[in-house]
């Protein structure tokens, strides 16, 4: 019989799936707005703009909830890579994805109640959740109030750097999401990590 540990409280799972759904909606509508006019596979501009606005505000609220809940529950500590040997553990984890996983080796740092994430996971999640997502959220909110952006920067509209940051940070979130979904299939079974995100129980 496999070993099971309870890792993920309901609030975290609820936030995770809300966040996931919103990011997918924002990615599709965001791409439809940015690449507007380039194909029938995109969501019509006016509809995409409305959905993107609503989903964007919802994502900002979800992010606010995430930050608050992390502070209240102390879960923020999970995202902090703990020295010593952070780099060495990251390299070990990267080597596992590059070689060990093909040989069927076990995960070098399986999750525990104390450390849900391996070092590479913690570094990447910290980068995404505390740098990239806030960038997307803040720049997105500035789009609602463009008067907050500088009027001009080097002779160009001041909203340009805000827009470029929003676009690039959004693209990074999408790339992360793709890799995140793929790595979700690397549990003991392809579905076990997805199941963990629903039930909260990690299976080894």
């Amino acid at each position: 019989m496999s070993h099971r540990i309870y890792l993920l409280p309901p609030w975290l799972r609820l936030w995770h799936w809300t966040n996931a759904a919103l990011i997918i909606v924002l990615a599709v509508t965001g791409a439809s707005l940015h690449f507007a006019g380039e194909g029938g596979y995109l969501v019509p501009f006016s509809l995409a703009a409305k959905i993107h606005d609503i989903a964007g505000v919802a994502l900002a609220c979800a992010y606010g909830f995430f930050v608050l809940a992390n502070i209240v529950t102390g879960n923020w500590w999970q995202y902090v890579p703990k020295p010593p040997g952070v780099l060495a553990r990251c390299l070990t984890q990267a080597r596992f994805y590059a070689f060990g996983i093909f040989r069927g080796e076990p995960h070098p740092y399986p999750p525990t109640v104390e450390a849900n994430f391996n070092a590479l996971q913690a570094v990447v999640y910290w980068f995404i959740m505390y740098l990239v997502v806030p960038t997307v959220v803040v720049t997105g909110l500035i789009f609602f109030y463009p008067e907050l952006a500088p009027t001009k920067i080097y002779g160009l509209d001041g909203l340009l750097p805000v827009a470029m940051l929003h676009y690039i940070a959004g693209a990074v979130v999408i790339l992360f999401m793709v890799a995140h979904i793929y790595l979700g299939t690397t549990g003991v079974r392809p579905t076990s990590l997805f199941k963990m995100m629903i039930t909260g129980w990690h299976e080894e």
Binding site: L33, H34, F35, A36, G37, F45, A49, G155, L156, D157, L159, L160, V162, A163, M164
Partner: peptide, 13 residues
């Protein structure tokens, strides 16, 4: 256009 506005879908790089 970028001299006075950033226009989603138009002022792209």
């Amino acid at each position: 256009v970028l001299g006075s506005a950033y226009v989603v879908g138009a002022t792209r790089n």
